[in-house]
Each structure stands twice: as structure tokens, then as C-alpha cells.
């Protein structure tokens, strides 16, 4: 059993891949908690697509893809903000307009390149087996930086997520804090691109956090559980991909989805099936139910006797 997990680690590229997916699983799991709590799933999807032209341009000109991605994400999130603030267009509509537009720009640029098909597949679905030591170091440094900043501004982020008007009354600049959060989100997405790819990164942001929310009503446990589920789905998915020859990005996301469905159905207390079974079991106690039913009746008798 254990050898099933350790065998792939004999290869250096699999060591890198496992390290990368655990890092990405943890970082996306933590950021995802705030993304889902603030209802920013669509915004996350938008940023994942918005960084695409930036990555493509830096790829074409041979620059640093991190810089290109951040610039593209900033431009798109700023454009969304400006159009939304005009009051003429709803926020989700503005997101829809700009993220598809940015994505199309990326596709247009990359289609002029020779190695179009392979590059596009790598960017969209990730190429986790091609993660080098340098990529790993970059992911670790940027990811831990994101977590460190998130930890430093934890109180502001929690206050703004919970009660925006109160946050304003405490002098917090909502626009500035929102932009900072979107920047952290963009960085998280960028470092996840190589492992899970442009399209599937949304699942790493949303699914583990949504699963964790089903299991706890406390923030810190939710963050820990979400990070653990992110890392676990990474390990399980990557192992499956190694043994079955399935696309790694897809099998990682499928693992996360399977965990979500299992928890949704069988979570203690909240599970769709477990809660129903618990009710059934409860009705299986005739004497307890009898008591509960008879109490008002007995009281009424006592009162009127």
C-alpha cells in the first residue's frame, strides 16, 4: 500500500511534481477559503483567464511569465472595477466581458506561434511533470509570500468579508483592500498555472474550500481542512495519473471533486444522506419519540384535569 505512494517518488520529476502540487494545494486551499466566503469564485475564474495574455506575451518575448501575468491581471481587474463603478454595468457582467476578451487576446497571440497546439495545452491544462527545481523554488517563495501577507492582513480581510459597512466605519479603504486581495489571488493563480493549468485552477481554489465549509463553521479549522484537502487531492490525483496515464491536472481536479461529493453526501450532521439516515435512526426509537410527542398532551391534561 505504502509502496504505491512511494514508488513514483523514485523519479526526480515526480518528486518535483508532488512537491509542487502539495504547495499549490495548500496555498490554493487557504486563499480559496476567502474566495468562496466572499463569493469571488467568478472573479477567480476571471483572473485565471485574464493572466493568460500576460503569460503568452512574456512567453513570446522571452520575459518573466510572473511579471506578465501580474500586469495582465492588474489591468483586467482595474478595468472590471472602473466599468462596475460607473454603475451602468453589473459587476458579474463586467467580469464576463473582460475575462473572455483577455483570454481571446491570449489565444490570438499564441496562435501566431509555431508550436501553437502544444503550448496552448500546457498553459490551459498545466504541465506538472515539467516542473523544474527553479519552478518549484519560485512557487514556494511566491506562495509562502502570499500566505505571509494574508496572515499579516488577516483581521482586515475577515472584517471586510464579514461586514463591509462596519469595516468602512473603522476607516478601512475597501477599494484598496479589495485590490490587495485580488493581487494575492492573481499571484496564487499564477503559481498554480504550471501545475494545474489555466482552466482547472478554479477547482483548486473553490472545491477544497467548499468541502471544508461543509465540515466546520469555524474559520481557522476551515482554512486547515481546506489546505489539507487541497494537498490530499493533489497527491491522490497525481498518483492516479501516474498509474493510469490520465492527464494530471484533470485527475487532481477529479480527486478534489470526488472528495467534495463524498463529504456532501456523507458528512456528519450536514451530509445529504447522513442527515437523512440520522433522522431515520431517530424515528426508530419509539420510546424517545413517544415521550416527545406525549409531553404537550400530558401537560394539557394536567392543566385541564
Amino acid at each position: 500500500m505504502l509502496s504505491t505512494l512511494t514508488e513514483p517518488l523514485a523519479h526526480a520529476f515526480m518528486q518535483n511534481a508532488f512537491a509542487a502540487i502539495v504547495l499549490v494545494g495548500v496555498i490554493c486551499g487557504v486563499m480559496g477559503v476567502f474566495v468562496t466566503l466572499r463569493g469571488l469564485a467568478f472573479m477567480g475564474d476571471a483572473i485565471a483567464h485574464a493572466v493568460f495574455p500576460g503569460v503568452v506575451i512574456s512567453y513570446v518575448v522571452g520575459g518573466n511569465f510572473l511579471v506578465g501575468a501580474i500586469v495582465a491581471a492588474s489591468i483586467v481587474s482595474l478595468a472590471i472595477g472602473v466599468v462596475t463603478q460607473s454603475g451602468l454595468v453589473r459587476n458579474d457582467t463586467a467580469i464576463g466581458v473582460f475575462f473572455v476578451g483577455a483570454f481571446a487576446l491570449g489565444v490570438a497571440i499564441i496562435s501566431t506561434q509555431q508550436s501553437y497546439a502544444r503550448d496552448v495545452t500546457n498553459l490551459l491544462f498545466g504541465s506538472i511533470l515539467g516542473v523544474s527545481r527553479d519552478d518549484l523554488a519560485l512557487t514556494a517563495v511566491v506562495g509562502l509570500g502570499v500566505l505571509a501577507v494574508l496572515w499579516l492582513v488577516r483581521r482586515e480581510v475577515v472584517t471586510i468579508s464579514f461586514d463591509r459597512t462596519y469595516a468602512q466605519s473603522r476607516g478601512l479603504n475597501l477599494w484598496g483592500w479589495d485590490q490587495l486581495f485580488l493581487l494575492l489571488l492573481a499571484l496564487t493563480i499564477v503559481i498554480s498555472l504550471q501545475t494545474v493549468g489555466n482552466i482547472l485552477v478554479l477547482a483548486m481554489l473553490v472545491t477544497p474550500a467548499a468541502t471544508a465549509r461543509l465540515l466546520t463553521v469555524r474559520l481557522v479549522p476551515m482554512i486547515v481542512v481546506s489546505a489539507a484537502i487541497g494537498a490530499c487531492s493533489g497527491i491522490v490525483g497525481l498518483s492516479l495519473s501516474y498509474y493510469r496515464g490520465v492527464s494530471s491536472g484533470a485527475s487532481i481536479v477529479l480527486a478534489a471533486t470526488a472528495i467534495f461529493i463524498a463529504v456532501f453526501l456523507f458528512a456528519p450532521r450536514t451530509g445529504a444522506i447522513t442527515a437523512r439516515v440520522a433522522r431515520r435512526l431517530h424515528f426508530g426509537h419509539p420510546e424517545r419519540d413517544q415521550c416527545a410527542e406525549d409531553q404537550p398532551a400530558a401537560e394539557a391534561r394536567g392543566r385541564w384535569a
Binding site: L37, S161, Y166, T216, V217, M222
Partner: peptide, 9 residues
């Protein structure tokens, strides 16, 4: 104005 589902004690 408040998000009541937020997991906070």
C-alpha cells in the same frame, strides 16, 4: 449589510 454565513464566532 452583514454576511451571516461567514464562519466567525
Amino acid at each position: 449589510d452583514v454576511d451571516w454565513r461567514f464562519p466567525i464566532s
